[in-house]
């Protein structure tokens, strides 16, 4: 690992100013879960690390009736996993977090860091995408909030500017009669990075039969976490039927662009997408039909 300056700003504004001062050669640092690996490998050699961990405004997980769930960028995976609020209102996130890496990484790795890394083999992004999450970003020229989808650009590339910091994730309160499921598929050990991850969210129309909003988010099968919008469109306005599920699953498998690598061939990954979409959809629909309140049920079917 190269030598670097170590800075500890107290506010977001101060942090952005420091990043600006280094003109792209400084990196925000929080848990270091991702950064330490790429720095040890010499893939990035920043001149300075700006430790944002002491910035109070980036902390905490809360529910705001107008905005929804507000998850501070510094919330660790473990905080999300064990948050009482999340466990009650958005349990799918707890279930997903339980399978992220290991307890040590979950203790230090942050939600903000996870999303800002642009690492393609992750889980959290798919669930956030399915929930229409947005991310708030601060920079020297002000604040902005964008749909999470717009954050991801390519492998390890995001739309964050070099002087910007991701400050929080905002998950709008899901409509009533909503069900969500995430299935993580590992092609070898259970502790391996995911080979494919699929999140499906279905919010039913008032008739509680036809699909209102459908989100199918796919991970690890494109340069960035993606939505299978073609597949989503097939379902909108229709009740779920086995044929429709099969069509949508096939469409999702077509829409993604996996590459062959250590964790599986392109053909295999497409096949797995198809199976997982089918399975996740059935569970999400079932949950939506039985959903009584805001609480989004999640079983332990988090892995395939």
């Amino acid at each position: 690992m190269n030598d670097f300056e170590y800075l500890e700003p107290a506010t977001v504004a101060e942090a952005c100013a420091m990043l600006k001062r280094y003109g792209g050669e400084a990196r925000p640092y929080a848990g270091g879960a991702y950064l330490s690996i790429v720095m040890k490998q010499g893939l990035i050699r920043p001149k300075a690390l700006v430790n944002i961990k002491k910035i109070q405004e980036l902390k905490g997980i809360r529910f705001d009736p107008s905005e929804g769930f507000v998850i501070g960028a510094l919330a660790t995976h473990r905080e999300l996993e064990t948050s009482q609020l999340i466990r009650e209102k958005l349990p799918i996130l707890c279930a997903v977090e339980r399978e992220v890496a290991n307890i040590r990484v979950r203790n230090v790795g942050t939600v903000g860091g996870n999303l800002a890394s642009g690492e393609p083999l992750t889980d959290l992004a798919q669930v956030f995408l399915a929930l229409d999450a947005r991310v708030a970003i601060s920079g020297p020229s002000g604040d902005r909030t964008i749909p999470l989808e717009e954050l991801f650009v390519d492998l390890y590339q995001t739309s964050l500017g070099e002087e910007e910091i991701l400050t929080r994730v905002i998950v709008p309160p899901p409509p009533p009669a909503t069900g969500i499921e995430y299935i993580r598929f590992s092609s070898s050990s259970v502790v391996d990075k995911p080979c494919v991850g699929v999140a499906v969210r279905i919010s039913l129309n008032a008739d509680r039969k036809t699909c209102g909003t459908v989100r199918i988010a796919l991970g690890c099968v494109a340069p960035r976490p993606m939505r299978a919008q073609g597949a989503e469109a097939l379902l909108t306005g229709h009740p779920l039927s086995p044929q429709l599920v099969e069509q949508a699953a096939a469409a999702a498998a077509e829409e993604c662009s996996p590459i062959s690598d250590l964790r599986g061939s392109e053909r295999f990954k497409r096949g797995i997408v198809r199976v997982l979409v089918r399975r996740a959809m059935a569970v999400a629909y079932d949950r939506a039909s039985h959903a009584s309140t805001l609480r989004l049920r999640s079983g332990q079917a988090g892995s395939a």
Partner: peptide, 16 residues
Amino acid sequence: PINPNFVDYVLPSLGD
């Protein structure tokens, strides 16, 4: 070797 590390060369763990 493209996986000379324990992230990509995975060992059997408790969960396996």
